[in-house]
């Protein structure tokens, strides 16, 4: 335990990242208890565009809703979009990467070709295209982002599989009569989760940014549901007159993405024995 604390002391990235992410997750889960007002129903036009005060810590927006409460509830949308869409990305990426790396041959060529095509299309454009096809809405944001970003996971998984599948314990498993699926999921996958986890953490951050971008463009979460990107979009015309309406949701996005990136970086250092020694 002491050793662990000592180790963690030297990993500021990991500690800060974890703290921020835990805080944001707690905010999202306990939103109803933390928010002083209801994010949608407590709208009072008499108090519209109030600057930050003791009553409204982050001020109010043009419809008189408390921005703090909306930012707190917005964490739910952002984090769930990030988590769920990255979960989908990870599943697609892992399955394709595992099979491509393990079976090789034409399947590998096909999957890698597809991955390269995906990487060459700007993610926002691709997500926009899917959104245009499915129509706006939160559910469709999950799907659009879940289909967009799997290529990184896929490539990382494949490269790790290529290395691992020639290790002797995999050969031994083959000689012992393990089936192909069993080898992939019990021999190879458990030994390559580290890099996949790192990519997933960074992917969540990316998905949160993308959700904000889609909502900003009006395709994501529909009003009045509070979402950080959507709040920014509505506030952009008043950015010089009432800056607090846009600053706080922007800060929320910034902090969350920073926290996730720090966590991802820290995890990579933590899981990689080579860099771990140097620190």
């Amino acid at each position: 335990m002491k050793d662990l604390l000592k180790k963690l002391k030297r990993r500021t990235n990991l500690v800060f990242g974890t703290c921020i992410v835990v805080m944001m997750t707690a905010t999202a889960i306990f939103a109803p208890f933390l928010a002083p007002y209801h994010p949608v129903d407590d709208a009072d036009l008499l108090y519209s565009e109030e600057p930050p005060s003791r009553e409204f810590l982050f001020g109010t927006d043009s419809q008189g809703r408390d921005i703090l409460s909306r930012v707190i509830y917005g964490a739910r949308i952002s984090l769930s979009v990030g988590l769920l869409s990255q979960l989908m990305n990870s599943i697609i990426g892992i399955v394709l990467g595992l099979t491509a790396g393990y079976f090789g041959k034409w399947w590998d060529d096909l999957v890698m070709g597809l991955t390269n095509i995906m990487l060459s299309i700007p993610a926002v454009i691709f997500a926009l295209a899917i959104m245009a096809l499915l129509g706006p809405g939160l559910m469709n944001v999950f799907i659009a982002l879940g289909l967009t970003n799997w290529s990184y996971t896929c490539r990382i998984t494949r490269s790790q599989v290529l290395f691992t599948r020639d290790l002797n314990y995999v050969k031994a498993a083959q000689a012992l009569g393990y089936g192909k699926i069993r080898i992939m999921f019990t021999q190879i996958l458990p030994n390559i989760v580290g890099p996949i986890l790192v990519i997933a953490t960074l992917g969540i951050a990316g998905a949160i940014l993308m959700e904000a971008a889609l909502s900003f463009l009006g395709l994501g979460t529909q009003p009045p549901t509070p979402s950080w990107g959507g709040m920014l979009a509505k506030a952009r015309e008043q950015i010089f007159t009432t800056p607090w309406i846009s600053i706080f949701p922007g800060l929320a996005i910034f902090t969350t993405v920073l926290g996730l990136n720090l966590l991802g970086d820290g995890l990579r250092d933590f899981l990689d024995p080579h860099t771990a020694k140097k620190i």
């Binding site: 290790l167 002797n168 314990y169 050969k171 031994a172 498993a173 000689a175 012992l176 009569g177 019990t186 021999q187 458990p190 030994n191």
Partner: peptide, 23 residues
């Protein structure tokens, strides 16, 4: 195939890479 796999086994050179670290 399973019958065959049961009959013939292998011992590897490197005792470090020949055992799955997660089992």
């Amino acid at each position: 195939l399973m019958g065959l796999r049961k009959e013939m086994q292998i011992i590897f050179q490197d005792p470090y890479s020949s055992l799955n670290p997660r089992m």
